[in-house]
């Protein structure tokens, strides 16, 4: 599970392990993802794909090992500091989108910018809504959107603050093949536009060849 070292790593993990009780969930010797690079994490259910994603996002603390994010060890960060760091440098997309039902499309995107502690940048929001073909929908509430439209809003929300890393957990599993292709293309394109590293956890083998690299995980013994 190693990758040749690069001069521009966004995230780098070494001797990373995590346990649920006595059961090993993740065991990785070394892991690295560079800016602008895309990686598919594949493997059977229960192999620790989502756990790896949560570890890289700082949502879980590893049992051992280190995770350096843009040269900073996130495992040593405190709660609020880590939350703010995550908001600033990471964008996330999940199978379930968790758009704020009370907010419009545009407000959902604005919220991510605000929580990243960035000054309001309407130009950036407008550009992203334009890029993702959401301008006409910008005043709609999420319940008025189709699954594909909502997926595009989630991508916009994940990228509005120009994150260094985009983490996507099964982002296309609720979509049919055509929409899954479109969603992945948009995700790649939007991430590349801000030179973000992209990590996609998926069990959909159709997608793996479309990303720069793939990381196959096995269920720890």
């Amino acid at each position: 599970m190693s990758h040749n070292s690069s001069a521009n790593p966004v995230v780098e993990a070494k001797s990373l392990s995590f346990r649920y009780g006595s059961r090993d969930a993740v065991n990785i010797d070394s892991f690295q993802l560079d800016a602008g690079e895309s990686l598919a994490v594949i493997g059977p259910s229960g192999c620790g794909k989502t756990t790896l994603l949560h570890l890289l996002a700082g949502l879980l603390k590893p049992a051992a090992g280190s995770i350096e994010f843009l040269g900073r060890d996130i495992t040593s960060m405190g709660g609020a500091q880590l939350d703010r760091f995550r908001g600033q440098y990471i964008g996330m997309v999940f199978q379930r989108l968790f758009l704020m039902p009370a907010l419009t499309v545009r407000q959902n995107v604005e919220l991510a910018q605000q929580l990243a502690r960035q000054p309001r940048d309407n130009g950036r929001i407008d550009a992203l809504l334009q890029q993702l073909d959401l301008v006409e929908l910008s005043h709609r509430k999420p319940r008025m959107l189709s699954q594909g439209q909502a997926q595009r809003v989630a991508i916009a929300r994940a990228l509005v603050h120009r994150p260094a890393l985009v983490l996507a957990d099964e982002p296309t599993s609720a979509l049919d093949e055509q929409h899954a292709d479109q969603a992945l293309a948009l995700l790649k394109e939007a991430a590349a536009e801000v030179d973000a590293a992209l990590l996609v956890v998926t069990h959909d083998t159709r997608l793996t060849g479309r990303l720069d690299r793939e990381l196959e995980m096995r269920t720890p013994t």
Binding site: A57, A80, D83, R86, M92, F94, L115
Partner: peptide, 15 residues
């Protein structure tokens, strides 16, 4: 709950 978890992912602190 999911909404709250997402807010944390977006950078909201527990406080």
């Amino acid at each position: 709950r999911g909404e709250h978890a997402m807010l944390r992912c977006l950078g909201a602190t527990r406080g």
